[in-house]
Design a protein around this nucleic acid. Structure first.
Lengths: 227, 227, 227, 227
DNA sequence: CATGAATGAGCATTCATTCAT
DNA sequence: CATGAATGAATGCTCATTCAT
């Protein structure tokens, strides 16, 4: 099965519009249990019970248990990539003059914040299984490279050339930006979700941290990064 | 069984000096396979084969498969905490005048860099299983709170009071520091280990990013963080 | 789980009407092998083979091997107690004038004779496992105390007061009666089943022995048992 | 291995005089645990631990686990048979004029009473395992037939001819006598050991019951037993 | 003699998957 | 489409037995 077909098929299969009631229940149950106990430690029997369907019903909709997992996790990929694919997104970043890197990461952070907030269990599953499912890894890498990375690089170079952000290698800038955003979101929603959080302040601080960290005032650098 | 006993026991049990040849082989095999396929998807039969011992031998040394896992993962905890426990560590940070936050994170980053570099499989296992093993979670939280966090907070306040770093809430500063370091190490060793890396430059940039991000020149802050 | 529920559940579960073909085969195979080799020395694999089902099928019907054992043995309890629970049984003993202790034990012996004759393997299993299964012991004691013993005591006192049988302590009379009956049945069916037996004569002799042994003509007793 | 050799060897092996300290501990531990949990459910590891020896030590003294069992149970056989083998025993019964059947069973009961009282765990083990160990069964049958049964039959015929006891078939008399004695001892020591027992009275009653049951005053017998 | 690490066959139990209804 | 009984390979774990020390 070619990579493209695999993902498409699953996305189509898991289009919420085409899913029967039972199927939706199965997916909901699977997400919940996978997220709590991990894919490998979850039995189809358990899923069936929680979904209120017969065990056989699961296999009527998904050829194997792993298919069920992928059908859950794969769409996450698409949704993560989505903003970068949104037609106007990059165009807007480039064209609007008043746009700056801060605006970009502010948008990005807010967007990711809402996504993670609304999909915690799915994100948990994704983070766990990306380590062990080669199909997921390659698909993820491909999607990231083809879509996110390219846009991200263009944006980085754009603002580096405008002298707005420091001239680290673009990959490094991307890494720092993503690391800071992901680090915040994971701490916020996965590691310490029960702690008291003032999200507005915390996000503002995170943006300030990122902007200062990447500000183009790194004067005394002994090595100059020219791209 | 009290938490302390549990960890101590396993640490003693897994002291490399007291381990027989076969036991070492078992641990080595387990680390490798757990790291590749995950704990739940690894069979004791597989471990035994790779270790070149009989399956029963595993259970002579470790009462259960989970005991084997914990005996591997638990020491990682101790080693991660180690530098913060070193007697002179904090004292040095405070007393030596030439010491600054940059020096601190530079030491920290280098130290963690070498640790992760030398224990990649164990770190992988740890990151996977911390999500599902409650014993691990609580022990981890306890060790972090009792040791790392306290030191880290003192250091943060120290340099905030010296006016060297920005007056975000200490927890936020700690989060940003850890996030940046861990983000780098994970990208470097787990996510993109095969990419070309110039570690010296990358680490220097990371430190610069962090120092600028936390530098005490956040002027226009609409909300002032006073501790 | 309350004792009552445990037994009831198993009885319901093992109602022959509600059992599938495969389940009946499993029970039949288990009874045979348990009876021959003992519960602990019988493997589920062996049972499955003899029953002509997959090993997994056993565990679809019985959660554990011990559940299978109890589901076989527990109903024996109920059947043993049955005659004492029969509504008319005691009433008849008391009310019909022509009824005497001999009539009572004659009925009892005959009834038990047919039961044991038709359930030899189950009785073997029961006798073996009662020694090691605490659930069985307590349930057995409870059922005996609540049902058999009370009836038996009433009957004994009744005929002692009528002057028909010797005034040993009722418990002693009960013990002698049961011992004699059980002793005969065990010799007949378990210890020497292959010997030539004229059951009619043997049972008649046993009744005579019992009646003479308990007849109220123990004159020279140095200790008088008054209840 | 011929039957005779098997038993002799074990008896010699288990002669308390020739046993080392460790061996005695092993036997003591085995008796205790076998008695509690049954032979099949007891692990050699468990025995070794309770005995305070290494597991290997058990197999230095007993070739297999079953050998250990037989070495424990087999001597019981010899001891049970002992009184019948005592040279003077039968002679005494026959020759002393004042001797009667009552005297005989009184001696028998008292003798067995003390034996069971002092060897409860061994008796438990014996009763459990006689059902499953063919070697034990055949040896037991042989010993009983060759020694006990013959003596018992002679004695029975003797007192039947003297008109002292009823002329049931000798086998029947033997069965009733044994059943009554064994029934008492099992109730007393195995089934209800915790109940309050006045052994003197209980045994006297049991003898009276037995003597009346076998007394030669069964007049109205419709079938005459002439041997 | 005693030890206890090592063995590997065997055990009860679980599980993803199939298929007749 | 949905069911759930049936499957049998696989799993974690136990155990009697061996043997080098």
């Amino acid at each position: 099965m070619s990579d493209k077909n695999w993902l498409d098929e699953i996305l189509m299969l898991n289009d919420e519009n085409t899913m029967s009631e039972k199927q939706k229940k199965i997916v909901a149950a699977a997400i919940e249990i996978f997220s709590e106990k991990g894919y490998a430690s979850t039995s189809t029997n358990e899923i069936a019970k929680k979904a209120g369907v017969a065990e056989g019903t699961i296999f009527r909709h998904y050829k194997t248990k792993k298919d069920l997992l992928l059908s859950i996790v794969a769409p996450t990929l698409a949704k993560v990539v989505a903003p970068f694919l949104a037609k106007g997104f990059i165009k807007e970043v480039f064209e609007k003059d008043h746009q700056n890197y801060e605006q970009f990461i502010r948008t990005l952070l807010l967007n990711r914040y809402h996504f993670v907030k609304n999909h915690i269990p799915m994100v948990r599953i994704f983070l766990q299984e990306i380590a062990f499912q080669p199909e997921l890894q390659s698909e993820c890498k491909k999607i990231f490279t083809d879509n996110v990375y390219q846009s991200f690089q263009k944006i980085t170079l754009h603002f580096q050339n405008k002298g707005e952000i420091v001239k680290f290698p673009p990959d490094t800038v991307i890494r720092m930006t993503m690391t800071t955003i992901i680090g915040f979101l994971m701490t916020r929603f996965l590691i310490l979700p029960d702690q008291q959080w003032d999200d507005t302040i915390e996000m503002e601080d995170t943006i300030q941290f990122l902007m200062h960290g990447l500000a183009n005032d790194h004067i005394e650098k002994e090595h100059s990064h020219i791209t």
